[in-house]
Design a protein around this nucleic acid. Structure first.
Length: 433
RNA sequence: GCCCGGGUGGUGUAGCGGCCUAUCAUUGAGCCCUGUCGAGGCUCGGACUCGGGUUCAAAUCCCGACCUGGGCGCCA
């Protein structure tokens, strides 16, 4: 096979100025248009489409028939001559010398990559490999890649150290959510719900600014457009700062990511309504939120978490990203720093008008207070010894947050279902592919 | 976990007791066509999730299973 010696060009690298030059392309047969004496083969690669044109009278009968017979979505490598042609899409076409069919596609495609006939999300997820051949889906995942890059660039630029903490953990957990049990040799273990305890332990190490981008696992049987059982979380933890400082990092990061994505050329095929949010984001205290909601006819008892419709009402009222701060102790985890003489904590949630994106807090760094907090939540301090020990030998004050990557993406791109922004989502029902 | 929808050719759909030998689009096969760009025209092929029940008659009504969409709760 000559293939590997070939100098392959992407479809967008070829222009009319190269007219007359030989070129090799490779990709998938996107569409065929048979006009009788004239035949067009549209070949798709990662960067776009190239039109291959065959004049019946001017090419070998064999080559003409080969082009006519190759099934859609087959993989081909084509050698030919570039011809500038104003009538062709992209201003050029390819007059083929040789068509190599590298892989013949079966004709009963599970979905239509040209997008002429729609498909339900479930069908698309079953055939994700093919769904990714469509413009919109492809761009969603390139944007996802760029979002992750932007986050890394941003945090690296600010002196953060990227860490990796274990995803297989023993039972001790911050509580709140259900865990997936797994078999770990002769013991039971669990998939980690978040890197929280480990990233805090790293603060005691002297790595005073850390971040992790990694999966988190939640065994909740929720079955909604906003929840996944395996999600990607961006977590940071910073020493010697307060909640306000990590909130600033968070809003700057969000604005930075939006500004990067806004520049992405393929954005239009996903959304036309991306606007870089203005910072700083509005901060409202939990008790102010409760008051606003009472006015809006959505009474919430002080001390209760906000319901979905309460989140939506507040979001509609504010109409932009905002922080809710100073949450009651009872609904925040043991590591959230209580505010002296109050029933509240220095914890915050970052909200998008449609959904919650992140939550964080000033952390408890006193060993005694932390131990007391763990016990008052009904947990056993003994099983947290590995974590608590890090607070006994010099733990600086610190703060941090966790941000859901999928929620950031869906809210940024105006996508309704979180499964759309995960290649192979894991939810209550879906374990395959 | 609770509540409400839905499963019809490969894909997306219409039909919701007899007029169904099941609609339309797209895909596929074949034919016509030398500038298509959601090409066009003609011909053909291809489907009622499964099991039980009601009825003279079931894609259509009822029950169960499986799959699935949405809302709420929980949760991030």
């Amino acid at each position: 096979m000559k293939l590997f010696g070939r100098n392959r060009s992407y479809s967008n690298e070829i222009t009319a100025e190269h007219s007359g030059e030989p070129v090799s392309i490779a990709g998938w047969v996107h569409e065929k248009r048979d006009l009788g004496g004239l035949f067009f083969l549209l070949v798709r690669d990662r960067e776009g489409l190239a039109q291959v044109t065959l004049h019946k009278r001017e090419v070998d009968r064999e080559l003409f028939e080969q082009a006519r017979k190759v099934p859609r979505e087959s993989v081909v490598a084509i050698d030919g001559i570039i011809k500038g042609e104003p009538k062709a899409p992209g201003g050029y076409e390819l007059l083929p010398k040789r068509i190599e069919v590298l892989s013949v596609a079966s004709y009963d495609l599970p979905l239509d990559p040209t997008g002429k006939v729609g498909a339900e999300l479930d069908t698309r997820l079953d055939a994700r490999f093919m769904d990714l051949r469509s413009e919109r889906t492809k761009h969603i995942f390139i944007i996802r890649s760029q979002v992750l890059k932007a986050i890394r660039d941003f945090l690296n630029e600010r002196g953060f150290i990227e860490i990796n903490t274990p995803k297989i953990v023993s039972a001790a957990t911050e509580g709140g959510t259900a865990l997936f049990p797994i078999s770990y040799f002769e013991r039971e273990a669990f998939l980690n719900q978040s890197p929280q305890l480990y990233k805090q332990m790293l603060i005691a190490s002297g790595f005073d600014k850390v971040f992790e981008i990694a999966p988190i696992f939640r065994a909740e049987e929720h079955d909604t457009t906003k929840h996944l059982n395996e999600a990607m979380s961006v977590d940071i933890e910073v020493a010697f700062v307060s909640a306000e400082e990590v909130m600033r990092i968070l809003e700057e990061l969000i604005a930075f990511v939006y500004s990067k994505v806004a520049l992405y050329p393929g954005l239009d095929s996903v959304t036309t309504q991306l606007e870089v949010p203005k910072i700083p984001f509005q901060r409202i205290r939990y008790d102010e939120a409760i008051e606003l909601l009472a006015d809006a006819g959505e009474p919430i008892e002080w001390g209760d978490d906000l319901s979905t419709s309460a989140e939506h009402k507040l979001g509609a009222r504010i109409g932009a990203h905002y922080f809710i701060t100073e949450w009651p102790r009872a609904i925040k985890p043991f590591y959230a720093q209580p505010i002296e003489d109050k029933e509240t904590t220095n914890a915050f949630d970052l909200m998008h008008p449609r959904l919650e994106l992140a939550s964080g807090s000033q952390r408890v760094h006193s060993y005694e207070l932390l131990k007391q907090n763990i016990e008052s939540k009904g947990l056993s301090a003994a099983s947290f010894a590995f974590y608590l020990d890090a607070f006994r030998y010099g733990m600086p004050p610190h703060a941090g947050w966790g941000l859901g990557v999928e929620r950031l993406l869906m809210s940024m791109l105006g996508i309704e279902n979180v499964r759309e922004v995960v290649l192979f989502p894991r939810d209550r029902r879906r374990l395959v592919p």
